[in-house]
Amino acid sequence: MTLTRRARPQALISLVPMIDVMLILLVFFMVTSTYLNLDMIPALHPAEGAAKPNAASSLRLMIRIQADGRPSLRGETLSPQDLNHILAQALAKDPLAQLVILPSSSASTQDLISIMDQSATAGVQNMRVLRLEARQ
């Protein structure tokens, strides 16, 4: 007498539970992670012992672009002639002076490009643009 066995059911591997777990982990890590805070980064003064990118230059100018597109230095609004004069004085003191431009969130890109062009025409070689995001 021959006995026939029933065929074993095929093991089904379902990826649905694994996808559910991965989505839960993704949401968990997105909610609990901390993001980069620019207030923690010294934008102008590198840490002690760190190699300075422009060690020969110690002169730094920080130009803010206001919402209306006009540049300001230390709270004073500058005309294009004033900006040229200040840049010329800074470059006379130190040809490798660093210019840091901080555009307002309301300033247009054209205002930023215009000030960068004006600075490059004045002879600035070391220029940086910093964009600070507001906290929410």
Results as ranks from 00 to 15, higher is better:
Gln98Ser: 10
Pro103Met: 04
Asp68Gly: 02
Gln81Gly: 05
Phe28Ser: 06
Ala43Gly: 13
Met40Val: 08
Ile63Asn: 00
Ala51Leu: 14
Ala92Asp: 05
Gly69Ile: 03
Asp82Ser: 12
Gln81Arg: 10
Leu96Trp: 05
Lys52Glu: 09
Ala50Cys: 11
Ala51Arg: 15
Ile63Ala: 06
Gln98Ala: 07
Ala50Gly: 04
Asn37Gln: 14
Thr34Leu: 10
Phe29Pro: 02
Gly75Gln: 01
Ala50Ile: 09
Lys93Gly: 05
Val31Cys: 09
Leu44Lys: 12
Ser33Tyr: 09
Leu44His: 12
Arg74Gly: 02
Gln66Met: 09
Leu96Glu: 15
Glu48His: 08
Ala90Tyr: 03
Met18Trp: 15
Arg74Ser: 06
Ala50Tyr: 15
Ile41Leu: 15
His85Gly: 09
Arg64Asp: 09
Met116Tyr: 06
Val21Asp: 07
Asn54His: 13
Gln89Met: 03
Met62Thr: 11
Arg70Ile: 03
Ala55Gln: 07
Asn37Thr: 03
Ser105Pro: 03
Val100Asp: 06
Ala97Tyr: 01
Pro42Arg: 05
Thr109Arg: 14
Ser57Trp: 07
Ile63Phe: 03
Asn54Gln: 14
Lys52Pro: 06
Ser58Cys: 03
Val21Lys: 14
Leu59His: 12
Val100Glu: 09
Gln81Leu: 12
Met22Asp: 11
Ala107Cys: 03
Ile115Tyr: 00
Ile115Asn: 01
Val100Gln: 07
Gly75Lys: 00
Leu78Gln: 10
Val31Tyr: 11
Lys93Pro: 00
Ile113Pro: 01
Ile41Gln: 08
Asn54Gly: 08
Met40Ile: 06
Leu59Val: 05
Leu59Thr: 10
Ile63Met: 07
Ile86Cys: 01
Arg64Ser: 08
Ser105Tyr: 08
Thr77Val: 14
Leu102Trp: 04
Ile65Asn: 02
Ala55Trp: 04
Ser58Glu: 13
Gly69Cys: 05
Ala50Phe: 13
Leu23Asn: 08
Ser57His: 04
Met30Ile: 12
Ile101Glu: 02
Ala90Lys: 01
Asp111Ser: 15
Met62Glu: 15
Leu112Asp: 02
Gly75Trp: 07
Leu44Val: 15
Val21Ile: 15
Leu25Phe: 13
Ile19Gln: 10
